[in-house]
């Protein structure tokens, strides 16, 4: 297993649309393992392959504090329902910023698991929000896209400055 570097906003590679995984093989299981390790180490509660510069439809999530309930979704497709709720989101690719974003209350996701078996899951609460957030990454979309242009520009400036400092 290895910890992978995470791309940071405004890196244009985060805007790539991911392609479906053709075959869940050893290469994908290694990717999943690395992504889980990277997510736990960050620490984060969800990570999309896009964020580690692999443009295939893979996401990993664990919203528990005990970090013992990992979810793996390969080629996920979503149906959304319920009320529109606002919560504050943050992103490992936009480190240190937390802003209110609206999402659907419930989500049903159909996907393949780490062994390539099809499954479906209905989620609510933080898990539901996290699934929606990670699936956005696979479309090249970030949570800052939901914010006002002014806020997004401010975040971008601050991050670019910090990235220069640490470069």
């Amino acid at each position: 297993m290895a910890i992978l570097p995470i791309l940071e906003f405004p890196d244009p590679r985060l805007r790539t649309r991911a392609k479906p995984v053709q075959k869940v093989d050893g290469r994908i299981s290694k990717l999943v393992d690395d992504m889980l390790e990277t997510m736990y180490e960050a620490p984060g509660i969800g990570l999309a392959a896009t964020q580690v510069n692999v443009h295939e439809r893979v996401i990993v999530i664990d919203v528990t504090e005990s970090k013992d309930a990992p979810h793996v979704f390969i080629n996920p497709s979503l149906s959304l329902s319920g009320n529109i709720l606002e919560t504050e989101e943050g992103c490992l690719s936009v480190p240190g910023f937390y802003e209110p974003v609206t999402r659907h209350e419930f989500v049903r996701v159909d996907a393949l698991d780490a062994s390539g078996n099809a499954f479906s899951l209905e989620a609510e609460g933080l898990l539901s929000i996290c699934i929606q957030h990670e699936c956005d990454h696979l479309e090249g979309k970030l949570f800052v896209d939901y914010l006002s242009g002014l806020k997004r520009t401010r975040i971008k400036k601050k991050l670019v400055k910090l990235q220069k400092q640490s470069a």
Binding site: P43, G44, I45, L47, I61, P95, Y98
Partner: peptide, 10 residues
């Protein structure tokens, strides 16, 4: 997604 850092927010 990253969970907000509760101590930092506080």
């Amino acid at each position: 997604m990253s969970a907000r850092n509760e101590r930092a927010r506080a």
